[in-house]
Write a protein that binds this DNA or RNA. Structure first.
Lengths: 245, 245
DNA sequence: AAGTGGTCTAGACCACTAG
DNA sequence: TAGTGGTCTAGACCACTTC
């Protein structure tokens, strides 16, 4: 009969690893662990908390604690290369990508001074005005990604980019019409734990990291014309990049 | 006088955000919070635990709890493109990249049957033999990345790749000599919380996610010749990708 | 209404770190 | 050795979900 929270967590982890407790299955609850292991409720709770912060389990209040499921959405950074046919059909993570429809909600457009890091990335003087477009991607009713796009106000003011409906082809088509067609992108990417705000905005389960991506769009003559900051639910996304040379 | 763990954490979070408690600074300890807020020790502890699992703080037993520092190492996936000059000097995250020397330790080479997912990625029959090279990257005495490279045994057996010292130019130079020069790569990337094993292997602080990358190397004629699985300490790395078109 | 997770208390003892 | 974090107990009350 195990005694510590860690040992109880080890037991449960092994039962998850072995498949005895499959993804989506209900774990023994706090009262059950108290009975089975003869520990205090807080100890049982700590054991489950360990699994939750490891990302192995998800708590549903009033219902139970469940083995986490991972059915990723695939984000392919360079579709063109990916579609040239190489490197296909050999994915590591099963890509239930396709056909869950992704919706955009909460789109909001306004103009404001650029944050310092954005101004720097856009090669603008500190405090320059930018058009800010922000929105949320939703899949099956659940938010999975928050995105904020920053564009130099002097460039896009008056165009459809400064309005909610950017028209056919979207922001990039409009940028092309303005003589600022993006053809190269630099993505900087980091993973970290979310803040409380972010947890709420993306409905994140405890123990879920986020992936923060800054994508800078550059024109033919190497001018940065957009910075897009994306915040992805890491429990939902797999990122794919195709690299040459 | 705040009461709950959450409220205490909010206070501390705000003091961190405002810069009053700078990265590396010592937070008020459990006894101090008990005195200041008039709560039980477990409640004070829970408040600090919230910050730790958010990745904002790091505990050092016997010493105190400290505001986390983030001084990333930059991993540039496609150096050639990066060095063509575009998109430089506009990084979002300050890249203290360069000059901390990175060492390889614990290199271990052996031959074994390929795990199913690796066999699939390498286009090999299930259970085919692969040469496995695994090692650890260490910076300033701290492990920051674990890597495991899988290569088809039929291809590399007998070459220096199957030995610990691969010689000048490393694995890729040897693959080129074998008529299997990698020229394209597919990287699949995911962030998640680490297992206990991984936490120990990489000396991860609580609240630190890992980034898991599978890189498949392809030859000119589109044959996969290596799968490299990397596990990165997300508290230490920023990834950079250059994407065209 | 019963069962589940969520939070808190007040106290105990241990293990590690620093001066 | 004093101060810090690490873990556990036994009990309380609350909020939410499910039936």
């Amino acid at each position: 009969m195990a005694q510590t929270a860690r040992q109880i967590a080890d037991d449960l982890r092994e039962r998850i690893g072995s498949g005895e407790l499959a993804p989506g299955a209900r774990l023994p609850g706090e009262p059950a662990l108290v009975r089975q292991y003869g520990v205090a409720k807080e100890t049982a709770r700590r054991a489950l908390t360990l699994l939750v912060t490891e990302g192995l389990a998800v708590r549903r209040r009033g219902s139970g604690t469940y083995v986490r499921e991972f059915q990723p959405i695939r984000r392919v950074a360079n579709r063109r290369l990916a579609q040239e046919g190489w490197g296909r059909g050999r994915s590591i993570w099963a890509a239930d990508l396709g056909e869950r429809p992704m919706k955009v909600t909460g789109l909001h457009v306004h103009e404001a001074p650029a944050p310092d890091d954005i101004a720097r990335a856009l090669d603008l003087p500190t405090g320059s005005s930018v058009v800010i477009r922000d929105w949320l991607f939703v899949v099956e009713g659940e938010p999975v990604q928050a995105a904020v796009s920053y564009l130099p106000a002097d460039l896009v003011r008056g165009s459809a980019i400064a309005r909610e409906d950017t028209g056919p082809g979207g922001t990039y088509a409009r940028l092309a019409e303005l003589g600022a067609k993006p053809i190269r992108f630099v993505e900087e990417l980091r993973a970290r734990m979310p803040s409380q705000d972010e947890t709420e905005r993306l409905h994140l389960a405890d123990g879920t990291p986020v992936v923060e991506i800054y994508r800078t769009a550059l024109t033919e003559d190497d001018r940065p014309v957009e910075v897009n900051r994306m915040l992805l639910d890491a429990g939902v996304y797999v990122m794919e990049y195709h690299v040459t040379s």
